[in-house]
Design a protein around this nucleic acid. Structure first.
Lengths: 139, 139
DNA sequence: GTAACTGCAAAATATTTGCATCCTT
DNA sequence: AAGGATGCAAATATTTTGCAGTTAC
């Protein structure tokens, strides 16, 4: 299994404190993180700007991917091994819990194909599902 | 067919310049609009703040719905007739053109159901498809 | 040693809030 | 006339940029 450092060096990135620690956060949470989440969870260890730049770098390299949201923020989550720089293959469904507000990658649930109207050509797709997660089930 | 004023009064909203004009914008474009789009397309006729508040009001009343994006912005599009205040039923696929960047509501393409892992309960879902629209076909 | 990364300061941008005034009903 | 909507000013919050100092290799 790849270590944090492997992931960084494999992508031609030098191993620094902020990168290691932010990457660790992603590895620990199997869900998605926002800039604010990361800021909160690293204490005030790193500058806001460093976090912005790290997220950008990770996205460019295909280490993390962005998850669309309706609340004017961006969520990021780890890519699986098959993502490459500039080319994401995060074709799984993302689940947002209405109770605890966590966003989870359902890595095993593939985004289904849909038939598009004549003239439209699909290149990529994303699917979001809102509801209650395993920890927040309603009875 | 409902006129602009009908839509407003039916929702208990008074008919004002900004609401009429912004609603008209939505009726004209069958796609999605951002706050910036609206600002641009109305000249400097209305205050930024008014646009924020109008979009919020329309969303609350179920006149428009939000479309998730990955670029830290919110897009809005008209709901079909069956949306009610606080309860959106915009269960269609949204298409984003990689060329012209327009977002289109594919009102006839329903978001397919997916089978979720044990313990997850779905309440709502959204699907985004990126590609080339009818006007921007690649040969 | 050198290139790349980080932190700080500041600029630019986006969003929210309070309040006085104006408009719709 | 009364309540709600708007515009303005200002407070917050978010994101980007430039640059000097530091760190990884």
């Amino acid at each position: 299994m790849l270590t944090k450092n492997d992931i960084l060096t494999k992508n031609g990135l030098s191993v620094t404190q902020s990168r290691t620690q932010i990457l660790e956060l992603f590895l620990k949470s199997n869900g998605a993180l926002s800039h604010a989440d990361i800021e909160r969870n690293t204490g005030a260890a790193f500058d806001r700007v460093t976090i912005y730049r790290t997220l950008q770098t990770f996205t460019d390299k295909g280490i993390i991917h962005q998850i669309p949201t309706t609340d004017n923020s961006i969520l990021y989550a780890l890519c699986r091994e098959n993502c490459e720089a500039g080319h994401h293959h995060d074709n799984h469904v993302h689940f947002i819990c209405l109770q605890c507000n966590a966003t989870t990658c359902l890595a095993d649930v593939t985004v289904p194909d849909v038939r598009l109207p004549k003239g439209f050509v699909a290149r990529q797709s994303a699917m979001l599902v809102w509801g209650f997660c395993e920890n927040c089930k309603q009875e």
